[in-house]
Amino acid sequence: MKMLVVCGSGLGSSFMIEMNVKEILKEINAKNVDIDHSDLGSASPDQADVFIVGKDLAGAAQSLGELIVLNNILDKQELKERIVERLEKDSLI
């Protein structure tokens, strides 16, 4: 599965979230999950299966496809719950 974290400029908050996702993936021992980050302007639906965004960009990111929308992008616990939930759905963990 390919996940892409998206933010407005693609180098600030999306990168912070990506680092946290990487940590979480290691922690829960998830394999076959790719994670990257990008900016909203250059992200396209074919780049990933699931797109991770903060709630302020959820509206603008809607057209990308399946979204994981975060209430608080610095909250690792929320991020972990949402990632685990999504990976369990596809039996990836």
């Binding site: 933010c7 908050s13 900016d39 909203l40 992008i73």
Partner: peptide, 23 residues
């Protein structure tokens, strides 16, 4: 401009904004 067009996504968490644009 980004905040006007895309919304207040630079607000990282309650009380804190991380303002930036592209290089």
């Amino acid at each position: 401009r980004n905040v006007k067009e895309l919304g207040p996504y630079i607000v990282l968490t309650d009380g804190v904004a991380f303002a930036h644009a592209r290089p």
